[in-house]
């Protein structure tokens, strides 16, 4: 990851800032996709979040926390987008007749998992995505979700119980 050559982040220029941000773009995009299940909206979110981050970079005091800080902005933008957009599907050419998408088992399972994820609240889904999809530690998840470590862990356990009621928590966490 790029490092800033200045002591405080508040005096960073655009070039140094983007050098710092670029390695975080793909994780941010994956987070937004996981939250919204809409790749187009996810790209928009990442771009908007980048400009917001740039404008607020003076508030970032600790450069080592740039990842959790930026992903926190992305998560917040996803929450706002979800408030505006309740549901969306992207057409792949106008349907002239009814056609069912692939019946392959993996796709069906994937659809089931995505449906289950969509049933979770924003906050619960966020911790699930950060923990299982982006492989982040609970401490960093708590920072991104702007909550305590204990509360983040509670959300994670609650979400696991909703996703897999029959699974032992320790087994699910692996």
């Amino acid at each position: 990851m790029a490092t800033l050559t200045v002591r405080t982040v508040s005096s960073v220029n655009e070039q140094a800032f983007t050098d710092l941000l670029v390695p975080l773009v793909q994780p941010a995009y994956r987070l937004a996709c996981a939250m919204l299940h809409d790749s187009g909206a996810a790209e928009d979110i990442v771009q908007d979040a980048s400009v917001i981050a740039w404008r607020k970079v003076g508030k970032l005091n600790d450069q080592s926390k740039v990842r959790s800080w930026f992903l926190g902005i992305v998560a917040n933008e996803c929450r706002n987008a979800r408030r505006r957009r309740w549901l969306t599907a992207v057409t792949i050419g106008l349907p002239s007749e009814l056609s069912v998408l692939s019946g392959e088992n993996r796709t069906v399972n994937g659809a089931d998992v995505r449906h289950a994820l969509r049933q979770l609240s924003h906050d619960d889904r966020l911790v699930v995505v950060l923990y299982f999809y982006l492989d982040m530690p609970v401490e960093e998840i708590a920072t991104i979700a702007r909550t305590s470590v204990g509360a983040a862990r509670t959300r994670l356990y609650r979400a696991i119980r909703r996703l897999r009621p029959d699974m032992v928590i320790e087994e699910a966490l692996r």
Binding site: D38, E43, V46
Partner: peptide
Amino acid sequence: DAIDDVTPPALGLENRVRAMVL
């Protein structure tokens, strides 16, 4: 697997982010 199914590669997104910030 489920999320990867709806996450196509975002080609050039880094460049667009850089351009927007600049």
